[in-house]
């Protein structure tokens, strides 16, 4: 989708926190000097084209009771990466699955995220996934601290 400067301003506004007001879209529209209709028309279009994944409340992870976040990194022969990637992505436990460039000092080329209440849970999930895809060369890298977690802000001037 082709975005113009006004789209950039709208996306910038919506990638922040909308105002604590009964008419949050009206507030944004008047700040941008456009009608509320024009704003909503454009935003609905972002939604239709998939530019906007969703408009909604982002909740804090810890509140939902999920504590351990395990990144499983896999070393997969290139010729199998497509197949294994797709298989892992199709499982319920895997929330993110990416193929990434290998590094001489870090030979992993597939990354999957799993979440669980304990590390043990994550390790068990990893072992089961490894068995399912028949790959032994993997590692679960746990997060021990969160240094930063923010929503991306786009088109910041």
């Amino acid at each position: 989708m082709k975005l113009d400067p006004l789209d950039h301003e709208i996306i910038n506004a919506l990638s922040g926190d909308i105002s604590d007001s009964l008419r949050p879209y009206h507030d944004i529209a008047s700040r941008l000097n456009i009608s509320e209709d024009e704003l909503l028309r454009r935003v609905r279009n972002y939604e239709k084209t998939g530019v906007l994944r969703r408009m909604g409340a982002m909740i804090a992870h810890r509140v939902a009771g999920v504590d351990a976040n395990g990144m499983i990194v896999w070393d997969i022969p290139e010729e199998h990466i497509e197949d294994v990637g797709r298989k892992l992505a199709s499982t319920q436990e895997v929330t993110h699955c990416y193929a990434r460039r290998r590094h001489p000092d870090w030979p992993y080329n597939l990354y999957t995220m799993v979440h669980g209440r304990t590390r043990k849970t994550c390790e068990r999930i990893a072992a089961r996934l490894a068995q399912e895809v028949g790959i032994g060369n993997y590692k679960v890298v746990f997060s021990t601290r969160e240094f930063k977690k923010t929503s991306p802000r786009y088109f910041v001037k």
Binding site: I59, H96, A99
Partner: peptide
Amino acid sequence: IINLPATHLFKIKVDFDLGNNDE
């Protein structure tokens, strides 16, 4: 420092029970 750009995206799950996994 090592840069590990994605070469292929297989999945990002928008998990509403967990909150903001899509970000």
